[in-house]
Amino acid sequence: MPTPKHAAVPAGLPEEIFTLLAGAGIRLTLEELQQLRQRLHAVVNYHATIGVMGKTGAGKSSLCNALFGREVAEVSAVEACTRSPQEIDWSIQQGKGLSLIDMPGVGESGRRHDEYTALYRQLLPELDLVLWVIKGDDRALSIDEQFYQQVLLPALWDSAIPVVLVVSQVDKIEPCREWDWVKNHPGPCQRQNIEAKVAQVCRVFKLPPSQVCAISAEEGYGLVTLVEKVVTLLPAEKKWSFTREARQDTVSECAWRSASQGLWDTLTTAVMAMARESWDFVSSKLSALAGRLFSWW
């Protein structure tokens, strides 16, 4: 499968956009052109924030390493407490990068329930995406379901933050000895059980298959599909930042095209808004002039 070599915006893209505008007869002022350049810079250099959630031991750290190809050892604690969220900040340069908020595992104890509930509700509105990780061979989903229904959903009702449920460590789903270690994919019976697990998660959490993905981070299984799902769900202006930071062998041509289209759509929307504002200004002046002409008659 061909994958892009890098996630850099072509150097000539801004100038090509301005050339297309001129060719289409759209004339922007110097101030509007500067605003457009700033919008392009903001989208290309957007710093995304992703919340990685789920019960302790579900495989959150392994997922982060597998998706972004860097060690989670680069961790700075938001607060000096093991029960506090950990912010993993991966920045290439100023203005670029990705922050992963590794939330404390839900279900640690009943005593911590209220504390974690308040913490999740506080941080959720600041996120661009939520990855909720569920261990593939974990049959007890009641705690995950409770937090999802009572904490996550209410916090996201008034926002457009996408959620992807990640069924992790599926290589451990029985019969685990069927796993093909050469080709890194499940055997026939194991595949059926993985599909059954995904169907169960969809049913329990009332989510479509487009928001649930089965992976094995250690084996690199399902990561390409996960990236495609994430890029599809993200708003147009945020697709590029996630694709830019993802490990490039996990980014398919489909995901790449979707991210590129999101970048283009964001810029064209900005152009149309500016052109509309310019036209509204001109139109208002013409209307005023027409009014004066009619008054003379």
Rank of each mutant, 00 (worst) to 15 (best):
A7H: 07
P10T: 12
L13Y: 14
I17H: 13
A22L: 10
G23Q: 15
L28Y: 02
L33P: 00
H41R: 14
V43P: 09
N45A: 11
A48E: 13
T49M: 15
T49Y: 08
G54M: 11
G54D: 07
G59I: 09
S62Q: 05
S62H: 12
L67W: 09
A73L: 05
C81K: 12
T82I: 06
T82W: 00
P85I: 04
W90N: 08
S91V: 07
G95Q: 08
K96G: 11
L98V: 10
I101W: 15
G105Y: 03
G107T: 07
R111T: 06
R112K: 10
H113L: 09
A118N: 06
Q122V: 06
P125H: 03
W132M: 03
F147V: 00
Q149L: 09
Q150N: 12
V151F: 00
P154F: 02
W157D: 07
S159R: 05
A160N: 06
P162M: 14
P162A: 14
V167C: 04
V167W: 07
Q169W: 04
V170R: 04
I173E: 10
E178G: 05
W179C: 08
W179E: 11
D180F: 06
V182D: 10
H185F: 05
Q192H: 03
Q192C: 06
N193Q: 15
S210C: 04
V212C: 14
C213K: 00
A214K: 05
S216A: 06
A217H: 05
Y221N: 09
G222E: 02
T225P: 01
V227L: 00
T232L: 04
K238R: 14
T243N: 03
A246N: 01
T250N: 12
S260V: 12
L263H: 02
L263A: 03
D265L: 10
D265T: 01
T266W: 02
L267E: 08
T268L: 15
M272A: 11
E277L: 08
S278L: 06
W279D: 09
D280T: 01
R292N: 04
F294D: 09
